[in-house]
Simulated scan of single mutants.
Amino acid sequence: MSESSEQVQNAVRLWHEHRRAPFPASLRGAEFGGTDMVLLDADTAGCVLTWLNNGGTLDPKRTRILQSCIEDLDRVVPEITEPAGTRYYQRLRRLALLVSRTLPRPR
């Protein structure tokens, strides 16, 4: 199995796991450092779903959005104190990183 097909399979598995997980109620309406947690989830998930639906590719705009989401996730995940919220956003971050590794590097 090639590395990219393994990454796609891992991303699909994590995506299904993420879709089944309930959004942490304590994070509805929450912000960390000006980052709305619901929007961060929606933006990241939108990029991942687009990547999955487009056969492992993202347009430049969504690539930039995904990179911004990863930066936000890196910053806010350590601030989440509730275990379910931490698990939820750590999984979302792993998923975003998996997707980003398959994308061409910006020039």
Rank of each mutant, 00 (worst) to 15 (best):
M1C: 13
M1T: 13
S4W: 12
Q7V: 12
Q7M: 14
Q7T: 13
V8I: 12
Q9N: 08
A11R: 06
A11F: 05
A11H: 02
V12W: 02
R13T: 09
R13C: 00
L14C: 06
H16Q: 04
E17M: 04
R19I: 00
A21W: 00
P24Q: 05
A25D: 05
A25C: 03
S26I: 01
L27M: 05
R28I: 07
A30C: 01
A30T: 04
F32P: 04
G33Q: 06
T35R: 04
D36R: 05
M37R: 03
M37E: 06
M37Q: 02
V38K: 09
L39A: 11
L39I: 02
L40N: 08
A42R: 13
T44L: 08
T44M: 07
A45E: 10
A45L: 13
V48C: 02
V48A: 02
T50K: 01
W51N: 06
L52H: 02
L52E: 03
G55R: 14
G56Q: 14
G56S: 14
T57A: 15
T57K: 13
D59C: 11
P60Q: 09
K61L: 12
R62T: 00
R64I: 10
R64W: 04
R64N: 10
I65P: 03
I65H: 08
Q67Y: 11
I70M: 15
I70A: 14
E71C: 12
D72Y: 12
D72L: 13
L73K: 09
L73C: 11
D74G: 15
R75E: 14
V76P: 08
V77M: 09
P78W: 03
E79T: 08
I80A: 07
T81S: 01
T81L: 02
P83A: 05
A84H: 05
A84N: 03
G85H: 05
R87G: 00
R87L: 08
Y88D: 03
Q90I: 08
L92G: 06
R93W: 13
R94W: 09
R94M: 11
L95H: 04
L95M: 14
L97V: 13
R101F: 00
R101K: 10
L103N: 08
R105Y: 04
R107L: 11
